[in-house]
Nucleic acid binder design. Structure first.
Lengths: 230, 230
DNA sequence: CCAGAATGCGAGCGACCGCTCGTGTTTGTC
DNA sequence: GACAAACACGAGCGGTCGCTCGCATTCTGG
């Protein structure tokens, strides 16, 4: 068991996890702790972040932290769940509506802009979602989420190129997601105007990768050999 | 100090690190230990890999391990250095010679093929080079190496598009490297025919990204609508 | 053959980590 | 005001980790 067998003496036989009646103070503490956790996670990564450091950052004792979270993992899960909720709420179904007549540039640009904006506002999101540092159970929930994201992209792709073998669509979706992920990392590594420039590069990568696939369907006149002289 | 302040009571005031005269047995042990380290690192990552586990995998005691390496970091560094040497030796200056007349497809394809082949043969290379799990000093050496790689790509790009502002060339190089890295991750996550398919996708991504930049320079008639009939 | 160096062992040190628990304080309810 | 529940504290428990140290064994040069 080369995993992370440090300890796992958490609660186990609790089919219903009935939490104690929270007071307003408790809710405030939870928010405080999650904010501190976001800070610590995004600067040191998940495994290197110690619960004592999170408690210290929040200005409380380790015992207080464990009043509200059964273990370290639960902190990350709750944080991720809240971020996911906030994202859905802010951007709705970001790439769900696959308007079949939208030009490729617009569809890709909008999706990339939204996701990147959210990640820039909440740096910890990248750490939790795409960080390779996450052990055990968290990953399982992430895998589900990752799969739904991929299938969203697949759906979008399917509406763009109805005549393609499913395996290829899946592969293309994985490539798009991987490239987006890499682009996001590049974007987060820069700031200001340079950051904006990288955002445009990411869009270019995706658009140019997908352009030949959608071909010149409909009247969308994107041209790989087009010039600025009409 | 959120770094890794576990211990650092290694040797410090040793300007010349004069190693003891190695015997053949010692060299064998070193190779054995590095092989074990490669296995453990690539399956558990750097930080999660324990030196005791490496020693156990190599079939020796922890004390023996520290006979040959001053600390855990040195194992990773030596491993990386040997891999780098092996790579230079196997593929020469992989993307150094910037033949200015090579078609884009060929240049990108060759470079991608070489790098990916090497990474497939030595999975630990990805962990050590691109793994986000590496603390402290190792990263410094990696940054140097990363910078030289980027400047190699810049050089290659400069020969392809001589009339481009340096900042843009740098940015393009970073994008190419990031996309290659993401593609490598995708490739390593699959096997057999699927893996080969992903390799081709990575090439497509890079070629299509760079194609509009090089335009139709010279007579290299790469065409997004080109066929296989000469 | 033998002195000394190189190699090998493994219990264990010190540090940190996730987490607990006994105790004390604050808050809501009657 | 009384009482229980929720909240807060922080020393410390059990554990792993990187690494050491004293000692035994094997190799090498003279």
């Amino acid at each position: 068991m080369p995993d992370n067998p440090q300890q796992d003496n958490a609660q186990k036989d609790r089919p219903q996890k009935e939490q104690p009646r929270r007071q307003a103070r408790g809710e405030r503490r939870i928010a405080q702790l999650l904010e501190a956790a976001a800070s610590v996670f995004s600067t040191t990564g998940y495994t290197a972040a110690s619960t004592n450091a999170i408690a210290r950052e929040a200005g409380v004792s380790p015992g207080t932290l464990y009043q509200f979270f059964p273990n370290k993992e639960a902190i990350a899960i709750e944080l991720r769940d809240r971020l996911m909720h906030e994202m859905r709420e802010a951007y709705g179904e970001a790439l769900a509506p696959v308007d079949p007549a939208t030009p490729l540039e617009e569809a890709v640009g909008a999706a990339v802009d939204r996701f990147i904006a959210f990640n820039c506002d909440h740096p910890v999101f990248y750490t939790l979602m795409h960080g390779p540092d996450i052990p055990g159970r968290i990953t399982e929930a992430h895998d589900v989420l990752h799969a739904t994201l991929i299938s969203r992209i697949e759906g979008l792709l399917h509406s763009l190129l109805p005549d393609a073998r499913p395996a290829e669509v899946t592969r293309t979706a994985h490539v798009c997601f991987g490239m987006y992920k890499a682009g996001l990392e590049l974007v987060l590594a820069h700031e200001g105007a340079e950051r904006d420039a990288y955002v445009e590069e990411v869009k270019k990568v995706l658009i140019r990768y997908l352009e030949p696939l959608v071909g010149d369907r409909l009247g969308t006149a994107h041209a790989t050999a087009a010039k600025s002289t009409p």
